[in-house]
Lab assay of single mutants.
Amino acid sequence: TEDEKKIQELLKRANGDVSKAEKLAQSQGNEELARRLREYANK
């Protein structure tokens, strides 16, 4: 999905570090994506 692409892109930029990727999403003002990242990471 589009969200998964965004999540994978963020994870790439954060070198696979979920908490960093989450902070990136939040810094972009994207709380929804940050929440999805957390769920994605907890799979």
Rank of each mutant, 00 (worst) to 15 (best):
T1Y: 14
T1H: 12
T1L: 12
E2L: 12
E2T: 10
E2K: 07
E2N: 11
E2W: 15
E2M: 11
D3P: 06
D3N: 08
D3I: 15
D3M: 15
D3K: 05
E4F: 14
E4S: 08
E4V: 10
E4I: 14
E4H: 09
K5G: 09
K5H: 10
K5I: 12
K5T: 08
K6C: 13
K6G: 07
K6W: 14
K6N: 10
I7D: 01
I7K: 01
I7L: 12
I7H: 01
Q8L: 15
Q8N: 08
Q8P: 02
Q8T: 07
Q8M: 13
Q8K: 12
E9M: 07
E9A: 09
E9L: 06
E9G: 04
L10R: 00
L10H: 02
L10W: 08
L10C: 07
L10A: 07
L11H: 00
L11Y: 02
K12G: 06
K12V: 10
R13W: 15
R13S: 09
R13Y: 11
R13I: 14
R13T: 08
R13V: 12
A14W: 05
N15L: 06
N15M: 06
N15K: 08
G16D: 03
G16R: 02
G16P: 00
D17K: 02
D17Q: 03
D17S: 07
D17P: 00
V18E: 02
V18K: 03
V18G: 02
V18I: 13
S19D: 13
S19K: 14
S19G: 12
S19L: 13
K20I: 14
K20V: 14
K20N: 05
A21S: 01
E22K: 03
E22D: 02
E22L: 15
K23I: 10
K23V: 08
K23P: 01
K23D: 06
L24S: 03
L24Y: 09
L24Q: 05
L24C: 05
L24I: 12
L24M: 13
A25V: 02
A25F: 02
A25L: 10
A25E: 02
Q26W: 12
Q26G: 05
Q26K: 12
Q26S: 07
S27E: 15
S27L: 15
S27G: 08
Q28D: 13
Q28I: 11
Q28K: 05
Q28M: 15
Q28W: 11
Q28F: 08
G29S: 03
G29L: 04
G29F: 06
N30F: 13
N30M: 14
E31K: 08
E31C: 12
E31M: 12
E31V: 09
E31F: 15
E32H: 07
E32L: 06
L33N: 01
L33A: 04
L33R: 00
L33G: 01
A34M: 06
A34H: 01
A34K: 04
A34V: 09
R35I: 11
R35L: 12
R35T: 09
R35C: 10
R35F: 09
R36E: 07
L37S: 00
L37A: 01
R38H: 06
R38W: 06
R38D: 02
R38K: 07
R38P: 00
E39W: 05
E39D: 09
E39T: 04
E39G: 03
E39H: 04
Y40N: 03
Y40Q: 05
Y40P: 00
Y40H: 05
Y40V: 04
N42D: 10
N42I: 11
N42V: 11
N42Q: 13
N42C: 08
N42R: 12
K43Y: 10
K43F: 09
K43W: 09
K43P: 06
K43S: 11
